[in-house]
Amino acid sequence: MIIVQVLQGLMEGVFLFLIASGLTLIFGVSRIVNFAHGSFYMLGAFLTYQIHPWIAAGTPGGFFTSILLCGVLVALIGLAFELVFLRRVYHAEELMQLVLTLAAVLIVRDLTKFFWGLDDVTVVLPDALSGAVIMGDLFLPTYQLAMVTVGVLVLVSLWAVLKFTRAGIVLRAATDDRGMVALLGINQAHVFTAVFTVGSFLAGIAGGFAAAFESVNYLLDARVIVLAFIVVVIGGLGNLYGALFAALGVGVVKSLGLLWAPRLSMVVIFLLMAVVLLFRSLRRTGE
């Protein structure tokens, strides 16, 4: 039973990583704390709900295409947001970035209410994805396996981009030292724009996957942003691989916590977040 729970927690963890990866990427490069990340996620979910009946409804191919398409749509929205607004405040106070992303949260939430109402919506899974791989007592739902695959794909492709491409080298440099990249004559603005777009894309597809996994409503943004913050903070702000381990850890703490301390698992996770923050700071001062 414990093995089943751990496995289940790991699967949930990969999905948490998918949610948080965009947020940590954006923070790592541009030091923007994107409060609107949860809103982009929610947009991805509702857009998928909206367009999936139009694209080969009921087939896995059509389903995945609509999620991908919604990811691209959300990426475009993120791109526009970055180009028109966010770009103006990179050199202003950090608080101005807070104002803008908070404004985006309020606007997206009300637009969601306007377009899709207050009721829960959900995407019906294609039959081909609604089963499970059964091994003895172990049920591995096909759809969750698909989500894990996507999470791994995202991780591997981000890793490959960061490691092997020129853009990746610039990104890593930007994460370590923003000023240096500028000194090297690379247009920082382009780097920021690209990363914000990719981050929004990741939020969008994560939301798309959620739409068929659970029942979504306009309150999704707040819940998701807090989850994403937990993962990003425990993993170390801006640290992609840290976020992976944090996400897996949070998933397992939840799946085991509900057996042993059913009412405390959330408190434990937030305590962990606080301890990690304090511990990191002590270590920094100690150096």
């Binding site: 039973m1 289940q8 699967m11 949930e12 999905f15 509900l258």
Partner: peptide, 21 residues
């Protein structure tokens, strides 16, 4: 067994596996 999902929790998979066990 008593399980207590948090209000607003929508990923219930680990609750389902725990219950079915």
């Amino acid at each position: 067994r008593q399980l207590w999902p948090r209000i607003g929790e929508t990923n219930l998979t680990s609750y389902i596996t725990a219950a079915l066990a």
